[in-house]
Design a protein around this nucleic acid. Structure first.
Lengths: 122, 122
DNA sequence: CGAGCGTATAACCCTAACGTTATATGCGTC
DNA sequence: GACGCATATAACGTTAGGGTTATACGCTCG
């Protein structure tokens, strides 16, 4: 869920790719991204922080270096999101017709009785 | 690609779900989302616009109603993104060791020669 | 054709997100 | 323990994104 909140940014998606290909020290990520996007080291550091706080990447210390890695669970999480959309997509009958029909029914009802407040999708 | 640019917002993700389950007129989407998120109709209309401009949803007219539907291709697009991450993830050798080794090599080289500018990930 | 509904846009405000430069912190090395 | 490298944070400016209210526009129907 939360992964999508954070993957809206192209820089962060790129970082994700870089780390998916293998753990890397912050400097390696920075160097690549700085060059590709023309942004500064602190900017990249911030993106790394955001990703870490979102649980998308992990960090460990190795001497003075901070090694970042993609949390593998994120991929599964994204997959689940996709699966969810897909299953909804699959189950969708021609719900539009249902909607239309319901609208018609409501409209018809409204002619005679007062229209009760909708408690469901209208 | 572009889909992720737009799915960072929980409201839009919800709209996506609603539409994945079946095409719906704007009013149906609005009603649901307004209630769930406590936002106004114009706010929802805007989200619908953004989704449409991003190619995530389609719109067609039916009388006075505007019927929105999820563009099925989006699901595949998302799947491809996930697949890409997954394949990178799969191929990752212990690239960290490589990085570390390269760092060591560079550092060693730097002792004797001047360190040439990095043209690759460092 | 006038009223009303359904939907979109306009104009505006506010905040959060992202960038920058400058600086702090912490480890390794001489 | 001083210096240098690796990384993170501070402080700050700017913009874009999301919200609101008010209003416009097109369709439908009495």
């Amino acid at each position: 869920m939360s992964a999508l909140d954070v993957l809206g940014d192209p820089v962060r998606r790129r970082v994700l790719e870089l780390l998916a290909a293998g753990d890397k020290p912050a400097g390696a990520v920075s160097a690549a991204v700085e060059q590709e996007f023309g942004i500064s080291q602190p900017a990249v550091a911030r993106h790394l922080r955001v990703l870490r706080e979102a649980g998308v990447v992990t960090r460990r210390s190795e001497g003075a270096r901070r090694i970042y890695g993609l949390d593998g669970a994120v991929i599964d999480e994204l997959q689940h999101v996709v699966d969810r959309y897909r299953s909804l997509w699959a189950q969708r009958l021609d719900a539009l017709d249902t909607e239309i029909a319901r609208g018609a029914r409501d409209r018809r009802a409204a002619e005679h009785k007062e229209q009760r407040d909708d408690d469901d999708l209208r």
